[in-house]
Write a protein that binds this DNA or RNA. Structure first.
Lengths: 238, 238
DNA sequence: CCATGACAGATAGTAACACTATCCATAGTG
DNA sequence: CACTATGGATAGTGTTACTATCTGTCATGG
């Protein structure tokens, strides 16, 4: 298979394929001549994975390249594959958060019983999220209307995390159980990557779908008279 | 407060603040002279929300502008705020998926009992995710090693969604229950936006933390001899 | 056997995005 | 009154993910 056929088979323009080759996202085909390379079905499959990671998973090309490099390297352990996939999903770059949240994060993880490496990217992300959410100061808006701010919201935010963590705890058991134990390495590794990167998107999408349903259902429950009900009752424009 | 003070108070450079003003992310301050404007605490608060949506929530400036516009418009119903927030999170642009997944998506939603508007962006996202995941063809790798592909994986993928949907169902109840019913509109609306955008990130981060913990725990359970166990046992390099 | 088109690989160009810097006339400040 | 800060506009910058062009080579049908 030459690059034109690969492009047609995968739906990716050949110029883009060439670029992926240069970025190390896709292994080069076997050269049968200085300007003739041969690609196989594994290239088509790899391209599908690449596009899924980029378009659906939202990874950058560089992050996808790091992930894909671990796929082909049998010296990388499965734990490390998970770590690389998590690193690719991490939002907080190497911009260190100031560390003010770290004790809270540690306390939360200890409370959940989650044992996590100290340099885990998700840990940084959690710290950043906590800082952002608690800094939003929901109560500040009410307090501007008269009263003083009721309380530091950080503990409230942390407590509010439990329903999320409970749901995640429940999910994790199924996820571990569905690992294709005993399959060849490449199958397991790709399952782990897909399960990590794409299923995180899936979780978000399912949540939005459920939110739409339950939120509309909840709106119908609320009696008129509440502040919230009044803004909900307004007929939707357009 | 003038722009320099606002910049110092928020940590956002004044050139960036000016840009947010032009993009409609931030309302202009009150002009006391042709070149003197006055900003208040609500601008500091708004800037914090903007930075949270952009940096933590991962929204584009345009998407954040759409979300923020709904915050200040009392003619927008709460349901619409949810819709706008979901639209801002949607990954599938207006690039219509080919529709091949739609019956599957409808069947899934019906099975879950989730009532969702037909034009919901999350519905498109789900279709795209299903297409991507089922197109990856995990089994294809094994089949390349000898056997024919065991089965069309789409139904398998759909069935595998149930644990995720179960977890989400459980979570949705808590989320609806924690809505600050009866609070002033701006408090409720900001709660909804934060709950939608930032808590989706939170869910992903918590999942990664839990995965790290449970995956390591699972690895320690597996007996040597399995394919998977062998790749797990390898001492981590570095 | 050779014109024609596809190809590999490299380099340069483009479009979108999120800022960032500069400019100008005016405002406040010591 | 010198001087810095300001509001508003416009232009420039760096990054990312491609996309187009160029050069020489290859293969293949007439």
């Amino acid at each position: 298979m030459r690059i034109g056929e690969l492009a047609r088979a995968s739906g990716v323009p050949s110029a883009t394929i060439k670029w992926y080759l240069r970025q190390g996202l896709l292994p080069r085909g076997e050269l049968s001549a200085p300007n003739q390379a041969d690609y196989g079905v594994e290239h088509v499959r790899r391209l599908r994975l690449i596009r899924a990671l980029l378009e659906v998973g939202g990874l950058s090309v560089a992050a996808a390249a790091r992930v894909i490099a671990t796929l082909d390297d049998p010296s990388v352990s499965l734990s490390d594959v998970v770590g690389v996939a998590h690193g690719a999903l991490a939002r907080a770059g190497d911009v260190a958060t100031d560390g003010a949240m770290d004790p809270l994060v540690d306390a939360f993880l200890a409370r959940r019983g989650w044992v996590v490496r100290p340099d885990s990217p998700a840990r940084q992300d959690l710290a950043q999220l906590l800082a952002a959410v608690s800094g939003l100061d929901l109560s500040g808006m009410a307090s501007a209307a008269g009263k003083p701010p009721p309380a530091p919201s950080l503990e409230q935010v942390l407590d509010g995390l439990d329903p999320y963590a409970d749901a995640i705890d429940q999910l994790a058991a199924s996820e571990i159980a569905s690992l294709p134990i005993g399959a060849p390495r490449d199958v397991v590794v790709q399952s782990v990557v897909v399960g990590t990167v794409l299923m995180e998107q899936m979780l978000g999408v399912l949540r939005r779908l459920a939110q739409e349903h339950y939120f509309e259902a909840a709106v119908r429950m609320i009696k008129p008279g509440d502040d919230i009900a009044r803004t909900m009752e307004r007929p939707r424009p357009r």
